[in-house]
Design a binder for these strands. Structure first.
Length: 502
RNA sequence: GCCGCUAUCGUCUAGGGGUUAGGACGGGUGGUUCUCAGCCACCAAACCGGGGUUCGAAUCCCCGUAGCGGUACCA
């Protein structure tokens, strides 16, 4: 008999590793997917190998082009560029499974012909029945292989009834050895496996078939994927063996969990797990990558911050742990602020401008670049996300802010007597600022300290009163920076406005 | 139910037959400062349980327990 695999469609001779990321385009790229992509990418780059993006969209009902493109966007944003596949193509034919149906059909015909697979005429009701019974009898299998050896007459009868068959693989009765680079090796008792559906009754092949065929066809050397696929591995090995295909090495990486210890999923966590959402909120790709790589991988007992180049150099499957890791947003925030602070003022300003624009605080012409950089400089290390720039600096762009009630009560006073005192302080400061010879930090600072010292006013009291008058809040960058950035005219407008509000 | 995987501070983890079980995030306290953030110093915080093996077990073995994943004509 002729083996389909004997006619290679992929003119590649892997000299080093070939790995693939194989998302199903049924939604956005999520955190777990990003980590799988990263591990594959790092493993490939570390070994000078090839990182392939394959689109596993055999579930035509749920797959969309929009989702496919969103996944491309997210991966590109993260900087995880693939060498083959996706929208790039390459020497192994289409990398989109829905375009590879004829290839799978050939393999299925071979399987049928060699007796390793068979048509199954089960109805959904029948399957439901079998499952119920199996559970009641505490059995492992939820399909009993009842249509394995159908007589030609029985087949004719089903066909006459108009039943469309699915194709099932025959599970052999010898143990299946599964080797995993992370989890180790073991033998799987075939009695715990059942004759899996490999082609649906509508003719579309299923994941376990297409995945292992493509891994072989595309000459994938290492399959690095989440442990949710661990139970699929022996099934895929059975299929590969029946087809005479080379089996890749497997490495199942532990799951990313939520704070309750459950698997992070689109279904249960919505877009909280969407990579694109983190981009929109002002997380940096460097931070995302650094965060996600430490979920299940570590280098030693001291290093937390890794550049991508360093990761490529240091990444190693042997240092991937076996147990799931909880997604901790606080750690991500810490890394993100670290990477933001790493940016110089010009780069940070560039990064932050879209967020001002998004909020309508800045129009597309951007305006006074030096002034914007001054604001970013004044904000300093206070940004956790780029988005934080908006609430932290909106008062620079508009005086239409609220005076924060708690701050007002504390620093402007809640009695007529205290408020009168505040008015006096603000009036005095206003006058000092109006008469000041040069409007720079040193001069202003000296003048205000002179004033507070002479009048025996606490610095905090005067400064906080002024801060609220100018920004509405009791916290923020150095007040002298704010005063200078706002400019004399604006400051002298805002103080009377605040006094009037008192 | 069945099959499988896993188990060190709240979280990410290092380590591993004899250690004060280390680091980081987060938390707390104090200092610095016009506030906040930051920075500096310090503090609290862990080897799932039970049996073995051993002079010695958190580490090796076994058994539990718990958690999670899968259990689809999804991937």
């Amino acid at each position: 008999m002729k083996n389909v695999a004997d006619t290679p469609r992929c003119a590649v001779t892997p000299e080093t590793v070939r790995v693939r990321m194989a998302p199903s385009p049924t939604g956005y790229l999520h955190i777990g997917g990003a980590r799988t992509a990263l591990f594959n990418y790092l493993f490939a780059k570390h070994h000078n190998g090839t990182f392939i993006l394959r689109i596993d969209n055999t579930d035509t009902a749920r797959s969309t082009d929009a989702s496919m493109h969103e996944i491309y966007t997210a991966l590109k944003w993260l900087g995880l560029e693939w060498d083959e596949g996706g929208d790039k193509g390459g020497p192994c034919g289409s990398y989109v499974q829905s375009e590879r149906k004829s290839i799978y059909d050939g393999y299925v015909a071979q399987l049928l012909e060699s007796g390793n697979a068979y048509h199954c005429y089960c109805t959904p009701e029948e399957l439901e029945e079998i499952r119920k019974e199996a559970r009641a009898n505490k059995q492992t299998r939820s399909y009993d292989g009842r249509y394995r050896d159908l007589t030609p007459e029985a087949v004719q009868r089903f066909v006459a009834e108009g039943r469309k068959p699915a194709v099932r693989i025959k599970i052999p009765d010898t143990p299946i050895r599964v080797d995993d680079l992370i989890l180790g090796s073991r033998n799987i008792d075939p009695a715990t496996l059942e004759d899996e559906v490999i082609v649906r009754s509508n003719g579309m092949p299923n994941y376990n078939l297409t995945s292992i065929i493509d891994d072989a066809e595309m000459q994938i050397t290492h399959v690095i994927r989440g442990t949710e696929h661990l139970n699929n591995t022996p099934k895929q090995i059975v299929i590969a063996n029946a087809l005479g295909l080379k089996v890749p090495q497997f490495a199942h990486i532990p799951l990313v969990l939520d704070s309750g210890g459950r698997k992070m999923s689109k279904r249960h966590h919505g877009d909280l797990v969407a990579v694109n959402r983190y981009r929109e909120q002002g997380y940096l790709p460097e931070a995302m990558l650094n965060f996600v790589v430490r979920l299940g991988w570590s280098y030693d007992d001291k290093q937390e911050i890794f550049s991508v180049d360093e990761l490529i150099e240091k990444f190693d499957l042997e240092r991937v742990g076996k147990s799931g890791s909880v997604f901790d947003i606080k750690k991500l925030e810490w890394l993100n602020s670290h990477y933001i602070n790493q940016l110089d003022i010009a780069a940070r300003t560039d990064a932050v401008i879209p967020f001002w624009q998004e909020e309508g605080l800045l129009n597309n012409s951007v305006g006074d670049r030096d002034w914007l950089e001054g604001i970013v400089e004044a904000v300093g290390e206070r940004l956790t996300t780029l988005q934080d720039i908006v609430p932290q600096t909106s008062y620079f762009f508009t005086d239409a802010f609220e005076y924060e009630p708690k701050a007002v009560k504390k620093w402007w006073g809640n009695s007529e007597e205290k408020q009168e005192r505040t008015r006096e302080i603000l009036t005095n400061i206003s006058q000092i600022l109006e008469e000041i010879p040069t409007f720079d930090i040193e001069t202003i600072e000296a003048a205000i300290w002179k004033y507070t010292d002479e009048k025996d006013i606490k610095r905090v009291a005067a400064m906080q009163a002024l801060r609220i008058a100018l920004t509405g809040a009791s916290f923020g960058p150095s007040l002298f920076d704010i005063v200078v950035l706002l400019g004399k005219d604006e400051v002298l407008k805002r103080i009377p406005k605040a006094i009037a509000h008192l």
